[in-house]
Amino acid sequence: MKRRSFIAGTAAVGGAGCGRGEGPAPGYRVLTENEIRTLDAWCEALIPADDAPGASWAKVPRYIDIQLTRKFRRLLPRYREALAAMERWLAAAGVEGMAARLELMEQGKAPRELFADGGKDAFEMVLAHTLQGFYGSPRHGGNRDYVSWVLLGVAPVPVRGREQAETGKN
């Protein structure tokens, strides 16, 4: 059994690692107000607004928050840890410093006292989920009003005759 790392094992769901005893931010399922603020800035730095909206407007954090209660529920402790570390790191600089910090994390050069591996794992995790939340179906909480599809020039039409089923709630 020693050599096995069970990625499909059961992990504590919800609550774990929250620490502060705060409830979820209004309109969210698990992440607290502080966590959402940090995550929002993190996602927005990954896909920033210009003349078109970015990850924040598209509600990417909402996508991640919802999935942390479902398919990604085992990742909740990792998210909590990463967001807390980022919050500490940003304390002085504020969210303006986000992009520069993410560049360091991508190269694994974030302070080891905050991220044991220099930040690479957390960076990759949030990047993958941000792309999903921005470019994936709005049904899962992100890509508000099909904003990314409009940006890319693909009509957000579902299959003919299935509009109701496709755009309805999950």
């Binding site: 920033p48 078109a52 970015g54 990047l127 994936g136």
Partner: peptide, 21 residues
């Protein structure tokens, strides 16, 4: 679909940020 193409890019193009978008 967009999510399937989001990771496809020529060498040198950034994976995120304004450059990606």
């Amino acid at each position: 679909l967009p999510i399937q193409a989001a990771g496809i890019r020529p060498p040198g193009v950034p994976r995120w940020g304004k450059g990606h978008k």
